[in-house]
Design a protein around this nucleic acid. Structure first.
Lengths: 235, 235
DNA sequence: CGGCTCCTTGATCAAGGTCAAGACATGTGG
DNA sequence: CCACATGTCTTGACCTTGATCAAGGAGCCG
């Protein structure tokens, strides 16, 4: 379907491997993984898989940033989470053998390694440590999703925007100039917060007035992360 | 800590077992489970475990209904899900070795079998089929949580109340008189929907006026489930 | 330069949260 | 049996939050 540039990455010495569940695999299993996987380059805007489709494999993010989102009634995206180097995406639907519940789209050019569903499931069945890792992974995601539910249900816009800034800070860290190291459109920020684009813009300018952040185009500079954490209600 | 009446249930012929991940256990493992587990009766209002505490085991619901909720800033509960006969609760924190992210409270008198964390984890490690079941379980919950996030972020009150009624219908079914077979306070319904008690009451009376449901005290009678599904945006 | 896309701000309005009061049901003790 | 207290349910009035609509500005690219 796609015809993305091939990338050659050897699982044996992939630095990402060390940070993923794959580090629990045996040498043989790693060889098999290396043999069967396929790595490709994806550009910003590329869709890796679609909500509602059957996932025929799992992707390991070697490089880049992706957003995973669900699409609402009028086509409005709700971003569920981001994925960056070392993250696995698409494994929920492969494991539970359901259709994919999110769409994943590239935000920053990415290198993804595709692992066929059959192999992935086989690895999980054969290697107890690997499968324990996967359970932990999904349980961790579940915990975060539950927290998200609470926030959406009970926090106001100001608190949620602050919280998202903290989330971005934690996930992507800051560059030398204290800017959050990811470039999102205002609409994308709104689609995490669960609000209208204009509302996010207004709240961001408020934070700017309060000297909590600074804005330069799409770049968000963090001036007072503790204040943000306090506003968001994280202690 | 508690001193609940003991209940004697034999895993070997527990009807609930057939519907849970435990059906994948070997005969030996079932015996071990039966030997180490402890079953107790819990009354309405009892708290089984608390958010923020370390879970030292998993509970298998043999009978009754529980709500799992997170507590918000001002003490407002956000109900994440319900548990009924055949459901496992508390396994997220045991598996991921984190503190519990929800509180679980009994809504209808329940019989719960407690399985020590150590045994549970051991079973997962020893039995690949069992652990695959657990992954599927958490992936399924994750899918539901993601759906919930979308709904909270994008649907209005009317749609969400309708959706919760459908959820209750699907989860608890109807009695002979088409009443939903669970008794929740209006506040509890509001804590699922993520809104104020008064707003739920108003929306329920609207639905009553529209002949979609009927209300008699706490009982909710479903008159037109398809209309509700349509309103909620589930097709 | 014109034509994009995205960002920003202002004005307006509706959804739903909050507060207050009363209704109703239930249980308790006298 | 009544009087009373308690907890939940319901309704009305009011007001805040944030969504929507509209218009203009800024930046980028062919």
């Amino acid at each position: 379907m796609r015809n993305n540039p091939k990338e050659f990455i050897f699982c044996e010495d992939c630095f990402v491997k060390l940070h993923t569940s794959f580090r629990t695999l045996s040498e043989d299993q790693i060889h098999q993984l290396n043999y069967e996987k396929a790595c490709n380059l994806y550009k910003r805007g590329d869709t890796v898989y679609h909500e509602g489709h059957r996932g025929n494999g799992v992707y390991c993010v070697n490089k880049g940033v992706l957003k995973l989102y669900k699409t609402g009634i009028d086509g409005k995206e709700q971003i569920i989470r981001f994925a960056k180097a070392g993250d696995l995406i698409g494994f929920r639907s492969v494991i539970s053998d359901e259709i994919s519940c999110t769409t994943s789209k590239v935000i920053e050019d990415a290198v993804l390694c595709f692992i066929p569903a059959k192999l992935f499931v086989q690895l999980a069945k054969d290697n107890a440590e690997f499968s324990m890792h996967l359970i932990k992974l999904s349980c961790k995601e579940l915990g975060e999703a539950n927290k998200y539910i609470l926030d959406l249900a009970q926090k106001n816009l100001r608190e949620r925007v602050a919280e998202v800034l903290v989330l971005l800070y934690d996930t992507f860290e800051l560059d030398d100039d204290n800017n959050i190291k990811v470039s999102l459109t205002r609409e994308e920020v709104a689609n995490i917060v669960g609000t209208a684009t204009e509302s996010v813009i207004r709240q961001l300018s408020d934070f700017k007035k309060e000297k909590v952040i600074d804005l330069k185009g799409r770049r968000i500079k963090i001036l007072d992360i503790n204040k943000l954490k306090k506003i968001s209600g994280i202690f």
